[in-house]
Every structure is written in C-alpha cells, then in structure tokens.
Design a protein around this nucleic acid. Structure first.
Length: 743
DNA sequence: GAAGGCGGTCTTTTT
DNA sequence: GACCGCCTTC
C-alpha cells in the first residue's frame, strides 16, 4: 500500500478511480507515467484484475518500453501478459492474426513513407497524371488525411462533387488501395484503419478483443486521430473502462491528423467520465515553468489549468541573440563544453532542440571539431538509408513474394544489367496473366518479348529461391550475411568510393547487430524468430526509440521528437519569427496554426529541468539564401524578469571565425556522422591506427577464404592490405572493406 | 544500360 | 544548398 502514499491526492484519485471512463489532464512533468504505472499495479494488486485484461497504449516504442519496465518493477508476477505497446504495433499484432478475414495474407508487409512514394509514382505514371500539376506528395497527403478520418476510397469518391482535383484524388486513392492490396501491403495509416475495419466487420474478433481488454489506458491522448479514437472506443465499448491521459497544451500533431476534439469533447462522448487534473509539476524550476505558462497563456480555446511547482526558483532563462547561425552553434557548443568541464553537467544531461531538421547541421559541425559526443535523433531515419532499404527489400522479397515494390527495388541491385525496358516487359506480362511481378520473373523464359534479357533474370530468381528455402533455418542475421555474400553487394559498395562506402558498411553492420538482437530477444521471450517478425519490428521503430538512457552524449532533435523526454540542461535554438514560428504558420490564414506552434514552444520549454537557454540569430542561411529574422514572438511572450541579462554580443575575430568554420566543415565531411549511433571519434581514430593483424599473419576473408598477409601500406584514411589467398591468389584491399579476421 | 550533367523545386514538423 | 528527375552521351 505504501506504494501509493508517495502520490499526491490528485494522482491517487487517478490511480484509485478504476471503473468507467476517466480523462486525466496531465500537465507537463506532472508524473503521468507514474500514475499510469501505479494504476496498473493497483488494478492487479488491489482490484484483483488479471493482467491479461489490461492494455496500455503509447505513441512511441520508447515510451512503451519505459512503461513496460516500470510496470514490471511494480507488479512483478504476471506483468508480461499486459499489452503495453504503441497504436501501430498493437494493430499489427491483431492484424497478423486475423487480417485474412479482410482478404489479405497474414504475412503482409508494412510500407513506409518511401515505399508509399514509390508506389504513388508508379500509379501516377499509369493513370497518366501530370505530376507537375498534381504532386505525388499531395495525393499521399490527401489519402493519409482521409484515412485518419476513416474515409474509404468509396466514400471519398462520393464527396468530390464536381471538384476536378478531388475527383482525381479519389481515383488515385482507389488505385492506391488496390495496389497495396495486390502487393499484400499496408501503409502506416492502414494499420489503424484495417484494424477498425476488422473489428467492425467481424463480431467474433471484436468480442474476443473486447473481452480481452477490459481495462484500457491511452497515453498522449491529445495526439490521437479520429481513426485511433474509433479504435479505442470500439475496443472499450463493452466494459467502458477507458482511461486516457493527455494535455491539450501539448497537442502538436494536428498536421498528422491528430484531432484535438478527442480530448476537448471527451466528456461529451462519455458523459459519465471522471475528469482529473494533474497540475503539480515535478520537473522544472519555478522560472522555467513560469516562462512556459506565460507563453502558452497566449493561446485561446484551451482547457483551463495552471501548472505550478514546489521546486526552487532556479536560474533565469538565458536568452542570447547572435549575428549568425554559426555564432549560435558556436556559443551553445562552448557552453556545453564549459558546463561539462566545470563538472556541472554530463553531455547526456544536455539537449539541443530546434524547429527543423536542417538546423542540426551547424551544431554537428561544431561538435565534430570540438570532439564532443552527440547524437542526432530523426532526420534521415536509419531504416530509410539506401543500403538498409536494399537489404530489407531483399528480406521482404524472400518473405513475401507478393510485394512487387520490394522485388523491383532489388532486382538490379547490385547491377545485373536489368533495366527499365526489361522491367516494363515483365510488368506487362504480369498484368496480362494476372501474376505478381515476382511470379512473372520466374517465367521469364516464356516471355517472348524479352529475348536475351531473360538470361539475366534467371540468376536472380534462383538466388531468391535458394534464400527462401534457407530462410527458415538460417536466422535473420545469417540470412543477411548470406545475401551480402551471394549478391556481391559489398563489392559493389566498395566500387563507389571509400568514404561513403565505409559509412554504409557501418550501417549494414548495425543492421546485422539489430538482427542478432532480435533473435536474442525472441529467445529470451521464447518466441520463434521469423523474417516477418523482424521486418515488422524494423518498420515500426522511430528514431527516438533508440535513445539509450545510460549513455553520455548530447542529444539533438526537433521539437516534435522531444515529447515525453526531459533534460537538466536544454537549449532552444533558432527562436526567430520565420523559423519558429515557421514562415508557413505566420502567413497562414488559419490563426490556429500559430497556436500549434506555440504549443510546440511550450513543449520545448517544459523539457528543461534546471537550466534553459534560448537562442536566436539575426541572419541565417536557409536553402542557400540569407534571411534576416526578428527574435521570435514566443521569446517576447516571456516576461523580461524571467530572462537573464540583456542579449550580449558574443563576437569572434572575423579571421578566426572563418578559419574554424572551414575546419569544422572539412572535419564534418570526413567523419561519417550517421544517425544510428553516437559518433565516437576518439575510438574511431585509434581503431584505424592499428589493425588486429600484421604482415605474416594468417587471416580469413568472407569471400576469398584463408590467406597470408604479405604487405600493409598506410593510406590516407585506411590501410591497404595485400593478402596471398590460398585459393584466389594475391589480392590488394582496403582494411575497412575487407573485414579480415585473424586466425 | 549506365553515368554524368543540367535545371527545376523545395521543407516544417512524423508514427 | 540539396535532391530529384530528365536528358544526353558513351
């Protein structure tokens, strides 16, 4: 019981009120995760609820993982049968079991944004849409928007009312869904939509899950869209034990379809709902909280609530305006470096937050020269990288022969001399005979128009067939290795130039370790590792998910990625009208867009626990153009007495400046800073200075087998190693690529 | 069929 | 400034 004594009265009420609908309005840093985990424990321990009947939904895997861990700590026995997962993975889990009832195979593939774009391009070409006028992106936007609102292609078509471009959209939408179905694929939005569809269409399935999930809790409720709301409403409608936790002030995903009325109208939807407000903040200093409150108070149409804290006053908010973005980056990086040197903070305590991904560049450049470990969250997703996608598409091809997109991506990677003309002929044959693309490939010899090209296709088909037969007993990691070896992918990479290839190799290694980790996870959970399982895990991870709590590096990310996180020392960079709030929202007709930006600012400020620095630049390069911006209106909304000393000029001698920036740039280009792991320059440097083998040693190569090292020459960035292989003779190779193992 | 060059477009934000 | 698509050339 003493567990619950540590909660404040409001938190206790939220924990003890277990039956019926509950809306918890939880301000930033008010301990909502604590409430959710304690509530779960209370349900099990005090109310005797079987953990099997509890479901907790979050938005990111990271949040889910954290909650799982904390629940495990509190509950102990039986906690593993609670469903703690994201909307998307919950849906995948349900669909994997039952989607055959909607006419898909249960081993469907999940398409990410890139896949969607590729598919859309295809469709536009086929429907002869002029993409100069109607952009692929706008179609995808319209479709996604429709799906957020649960509007089917048929319904969409009914509402076009003579509007030509809408009519076009309807046509494309219908075709898009048709193609997805044909490829046995679902896009992100479909995961939710199809689950809702399934529950509506199949009373048996509906009843099963309603019985199962008698207690449902939803985190970050303000970010749910209509489809997600329908989903939880449907699931909860039998037992009506639905507890949602959210903060309307932190709703920042309207552009992604989040429906703020889900939270604002919760009490209308559930008239018997209990509403509980958590207004005590445990995270930030008084100063920081006051700054946040005064900014957000400029929004109209929010639920009344005032966040307060018992924490101490703390330092003033440190506001600095600089001449350029370079100066801004320089200042922040130095400030972090100083605070770490003084023992005030570790790198891991510091975060830099900005509005757009492009802003990370300048900071990265400075971090590289200063040798400070950092990690950029977001930007180009690890799994969106070319080499990773290539390999994943091989896996998809092996896993799901109906995924034409995957097959088409890898058929000529590495180059097999199969070009657009050949592909078009195969596609035509596939269409005529109602075959999947891959099945058409298998019959290449029967396609008369192909002529000699058929010969080129055969080895590819054989390769896939062999892999497919090996897949069940090989395991994902070994399968990847096998693909790399059999296709000669690595050799092709090498040919592209070393710097880039090295980064790609590292990414590939990373992917293989992820596969190994997946297999280990399966083993510990006593489940069967499958290709689909791995692909699905990979498809649903966001970059924030990979943030490790124990590691010591500065974190850089957009304001949208930082939700739910907290850092002792936070920098909000680029606070300029035109950047943040963005130019788009300033010029927008709809004043609510500015309000969403303001909420974003509120989220950013409230990430800070002890120390907050806000910076802006007078002049900034945007898309190759120099812009002059005023200090952001949001800064002006913070009372002056909360801000530290008046903006002080931090100027460096012009010449010094120019030189350091050049250095920074070169260093940045030379090093491979990729988003998968923090860049550890110190160890990278030493590693490349010593090889695990020397002249005369026996080594093993992935492809050439065993041999003897006859010479090692230090090149600019790498060692050129000469090896006399027993079976293949003398070869020269770069150490980075060769991956020689001493034996 | 591949590689390299040119010109147009674009950015908020992402599960 | 970066990327993408289209064009030309080999």
């Amino acid at each position: 019981m003493s567990n619950y004594d540590t909660l404040n009265p409001m938190q206790q009420e939220a924990v003890f009120h277990t039956e019926g609908p509950v809306l918890i309005l939880a301000g930033a840093g008010s301990g909502k995760t604590r409430v959710l985990t304690h509530r779960t424990a209370y349900l099990i321990e005090e109310k005797g609820v079987n953990p099997y009947h509890i479901m907790a939904i979050t938005f990111t895997n990271k949040a889910a993982g954290e909650m799982r861990e904390r629940i495990d700590d509190l509950v102990g026995f039986g906690s593993e049968s609670i469903w703690v997962s994201t909307f998307h993975s919950s849906c995948v889990r349900i669909l994997r079991r039952h989607i055959d009832r909607l006419g898909y195979d249960n081993n469907f593939t999940i398409y990410d944004g890139d896949d969607q774009k590729t598919l859309m391009k295809d469709i536009c070409k086929r429907l002869q849409v002029d993409t100069k006028i109607y952009k692929e992106k706008s179609f995808l936007g319209a479709i996604s928007h429709a799906k957020d609102e649960l509007i089917s292609p048929e319904e969409f078509a009914l509402n076009v009312a003579g509007d030509y471009s809408k009519k076009k959209q309807a046509e494309v939408y219908a075709e898009y869904q048709k193609m997805l179905h044909k490829n046995n694929a679902l896009d992100f939005d479909d995961l939710i939509v199809k689950t809702v569809e399934l529950l509506k269409a199949d009373p048996e399935v509906l009843n099963y899950y309603q019985e199962r999930f008698r207690y449902i809790m939803v985190d970050e409720y303000q970010d749910t869209n209509t489809a997600q709301f329908q989903l939880i409403k449907t699931l909860a409608s039998k037992y009506r034990n639905l507890c949602v936790v959210g903060d309307d002030d932190q709703s920042i995903y309207k552009f992604r379809g989040a429906n703020i009325y889900n939270i604002l109208n919760f009490e209308k939807e559930f008239p018997d709902a209990r509403v509980i407000k958590l207004e005590q903040n445990y995270r930030s200093t008084k100063t920081i909280l006051n700054a946040a409150n005064s900014v957000i108070s400029n929004n109209v149409g929010r639920k009344a609530k005032v966040l307060w804290t018992d924490n101490e006053e703390g330092d003033k908010v440190n506001f600095q305006q600089f001449d350029t973005g370079y100066d801004e980056a320089d200042y922040i990086v130095r400030d972090i470096s100083k605070k770490v040197r003084d023992g005030e903070y570790n790198y891991g305590d510091c975060a830099i937050l900005y509005r757009t991904n492009a802003q990370s560049r300048l900071f990265e450049e400075r971090f590289v020269v200063s040798n400070i470990p950092y990690k950029v969250v977001g930007g180009v997703n690890f799994y969106a990288r070319r080499e990773i996608k290539d390999l994943l598409c091989y896996l998809k091809t092996i896993d799901n022969a109906r995924d034409d997109l995957a097959v088409r991506r890898v058929i000529n990677v590495p180059k097999r001399g199969i070009g657009a003309t050949t592909l078009a002929k195969v596609q035509a044959y596939a269409n005529e005979n109602d075959l999947s693309f891959y099945n058409a490939l298998k019959m290449a010899e029967d396609i008369s128009s192909l002529g000699r090209s058929a010969v080129k296709i055969k080895p590819f088909v054989t390769l896939i067939q062999t892999m497919r037969s090996k897949a069940p007993y090989l395991g994902v990691a070994d399968l990847l290795e096998e693909i790399l070896e059999e296709t000669g992918y690595l050799e092709e990479l090498k040919a592209e130039g070393e710097e880039e290839a090295q980064a790609r190799m590292e990414n590939i290694d990373e992917l293989i370790s992820k596969a190994v980790a997946y297999e280990e996870k399966c083993q510990s959970e006593d489940t069967e590792p499958t290709l689909s399982g791995f692909l699905e895990e990979v498809a649903l991870v966001a970059d924030v998910d990979s943030l490790e709590s124990g590691s010591d590096y500065v974190v850089l990310m957009t304001l949208h990625s930082d939700k739910g996180l907290e850092f002792p020392n936070v920098y909000l960079a680029g606070l300029e009208d035109g950047i943040f709030p963005s130019y788009m929202t300033i010029t927008a007709d709809d004043p609510s867009e500015i309000e969403e930006e303001r909420r974003l600012c509120y989220v950013g400020i409230t990430r800070a626990m002890e120390h907050l620095t806000i910076t802006s630049a007078r002049m900034r390069m945007i898309r190759g153009e120099t812009q002059y911006n005023k200090v952001s209106r949001f800064v002006r909304e913070i009372p002056e007495e909360l801000l530290g000393h008046a903006p002080e000029k931090v100027r460096l001698a012009e010449s010094v400046k120019a030189r350091t920036y050049e250095q920074a740039k070169t260093a940045f280009r030379a090093k491979v800073a990729y988003a998968g792991t923090p860049v550890d320059f110190a160890s990278a440097a030493t590693e490349s200075q010593s090889l695990p083998y020397t002249v005369g040693d026996r080594v093993r190569h992935l492809k050439f087998g065993e041999g003897t090292v006859t010479n090692i020459v230090a090149g600019g960035k790498d060692f050129e190693v000469t090896v006399d292989f027993d079976a293949f003779g003398v070869k020269k190779m770069f150490a980075i690529f060769a991956k020689l193992k001493k034996i």
